[in-house]
Computed example of a mutant assay.
Amino acid sequence: MKWAILGAGNIANDFARSFKTDKAELYAVASRSKEKAAAFADQYKIPVSYGSYEEMLADATIDAVYIATPHSHHYKQIKQCLNAGKHVFSEKVMVTSGVQLDEVIQLAADKNLYLAEAMTIFHVPLYPKLKQWIAEHDLGKLKYIHAPYGAFKPEDSPMYFYKPELAGGALFDIGTYALTFALEFMTSQPDEILTFGNLHETGVDETSVILLKNKEKELATITLSFGTDLPHVGVVAFQKGYLEIPGYTRANQATFTDLQGNKTVIETTDTAHAFTHEINNFTNMVLEKGANPTLAKTKNVMTIMDTVRAEWGLVYPFD
Rank of each mutant, 00 (worst) to 15 (best):
C81R: 04
K153H: 11
I46S: 07
V204N: 08
Y114L: 07
K45A: 11
V29I: 07
K143M: 07
E311G: 00
E244S: 11
T221I: 05
K111V: 14
T264W: 01
I279A: 10
N214T: 06
S225R: 02
D205L: 12
N83D: 13
P148R: 00
N284I: 01
F161D: 15
Y75W: 06
L113V: 09
N10Y: 14
V301L: 03
A108K: 00
A12T: 07
A116T: 09
A291R: 07
L142Q: 00
D102M: 02
K111N: 11
G168R: 01
L126I: 15
I46W: 12
A272D: 14
H273C: 03
A16P: 04
H74N: 13
L287R: 08
K2V: 01
I222D: 03
A38S: 15
R17E: 14
A8P: 09
A151I: 15
A37D: 05
P164N: 11
G241M: 01
V93D: 02
Q189Y: 01
D191V: 00
F226N: 10
L212I: 04
Y162P: 13
I134D: 00
C81W: 08
L179H: 02
S52D: 08
G51Y: 15
Q106R: 08
K111F: 04
N280D: 12
N10Q: 15
K34Q: 14
K299L: 06
P190N: 02
A220M: 04
A60K: 13
D14L: 05
S97A: 04
P47H: 09
Q260D: 11
E206T: 04
A30S: 14
I266S: 00
A28G: 07
I105T: 06
Y160S: 13
K86R: 06
A60C: 02
N292A: 11
A135E: 09
L224Q: 09
N292R: 13
T120Y: 14
A182G: 07
K36Q: 10
A108Y: 01
A68R: 12
R250T: 11
G227D: 10
T307F: 03
H277L: 09
V104E: 02
F238C: 01
V236C: 06
D156W: 09
V204D: 14
A251N: 11
P190V: 04
V88T: 11
S208Q: 08
N83C: 08
E184C: 00
K20A: 02
V236F: 01
L82F: 01
R250H: 15
T303A: 13
F275I: 06
S90L: 03
S33F: 08
K34D: 13
E55V: 09
I105F: 01
F318I: 09
G9M: 11
H73C: 04
R250G: 15
E288I: 00
G169Y: 04
D319E: 14
L259D: 13
L179V: 02
M302G: 01
F226W: 04
F89L: 11
V99F: 05
T120S: 15
V209I: 10
L113E: 05
V301M: 10
L26H: 03
F196M: 12
H123M: 10
N10R: 05
F19I: 06
V315C: 00
V301Q: 10
S18Q: 09
I121R: 03
D319S: 03
Y149I: 11
E278K: 04
K23C: 03
I210K: 00
A4C: 09
